[in-house]
Design a protein around this nucleic acid. Structure first.
Lengths: 187, 187
DNA sequence: ATTAACACGTGAATC
DNA sequence: TGATTCACGTGTTAA
């Protein structure tokens, strides 16, 4: 290659002022094309247009692949995809369960109890509460519990004989915490 | 915009024969740039060079993402291997959770642990496991747990310093139960 | 007025 | 050879 080097002005005079700027621009564009060529694995032809074509196809392919992989991960029992904003811990000293926790106990029937929790504390109270439920002889049927932006939300469904009296025991054991013990009438 | 339309030859004569071909080529190139602009989500400026720049960055980003997702998926076949011929390490303290429970512990990062449980037992093991996690200094971030037709399914996400060594502690405390401890690479 | 970004026509090189 | 691809200098437009 020996392309034009001496054509427009054999002695160095040029009319345009943006000549060098345009040269820079061309170089910049060319280099971006090269960068794409390096990145894209399938290059069908060493030409600008086809390089861009390949880049377009490759991006589409990558997008599809990413979608597919993400779907596969979502099929798993659970996955790490949305664990991004990972819970900045907010480590303070934890009081016992008489803090700002709000616990609502609902007596479903003679053997079943629903416990709803909302709290600004994190998880220390969880262990205490679970320990209490264990000592009271309950069995865990259903738990949904998560901490988001420092706010804990939990629902626990437990089963055990004499749930009504055990609910009152809970009220005694968590006097500052239990906001309400409700009854739900069942036949 | 009214760019050059009548400049070189006021009456339609042109010197070059590849004039129209060059026009087509320019149009083709421009359209590829537009195609990239459509595909790339982050466009910092409406200019050719910067569009190519954004495309380059986006491809790199997609490649990284795809690699990461694929790595996560490749961790899966690893799961069943560890527990089978397992280390008949003679003198271990007897398992606390020696039932038919299957526990899979996944180390998300240095501070985060995911625990997956499927079991034919009901809830007795739950209290033991929660107690262990409490004693190990973990905090509960997320729990999803339910019992359906006698089969327990649970997912627990805990947080705590030195999750890696604590995961090994869990393996020692639940030797018959822990099926696998997986690693998920994160940066 | 200065600059950056384009589109244009053209000649040369490549296939 | 034709057809493609490229690089170049220039004029024009908008910020």
């Amino acid at each position: 290659m020996m392309k034009n080097n001496s054509h427009p002005a054999s002695k160095g005079e040029f009319k345009s002022k943006n000549l060098v700027a345009e040269r820079k621009r061309r170089i910049r564009l060319k280099e971006r094309i090269y960068a794409l060529r390096v990145l894209v694995p399938k290059i069908t032809k060493m030409s600008k247009a086809t390089t861009l074509d390949d880049a377009v196809d490759y991006i589409k392919e990558l997008q599809n692949q990413a979608m597919k992989l993400q779907d596969e991960l979502l099929m798993l029992p659970y996955e790490a995809g949305d664990c991004e904003g990972s819970v900045a811990s907010t480590e303070e000293e934890k009081p016992l369960l008489n803090c700002k926790e709000e616990v609502c106990v609902t007596l479903i029937d003679a053997n079943e109890l629903h416990i709803k929790i909302t709290s600004k504390e994190t998880t220390n109270g969880f262990f205490i509460l679970i320990d209490l439920l264990s000592n009271l002889g309950f069995e865990i049927v259903d738990i949904n519990w998560f901490v988001f932006k420092g706010v804990t939300t939990g629902m626990i469904c437990v089963e055990g004989v004499d749930a009504a009296v055990k609910a009152e025991d809970l009220r005694k054991l968590l006097p500052e915490t239990i906001k309400a013990i409700r009854m739900i009438s069942v036949d």
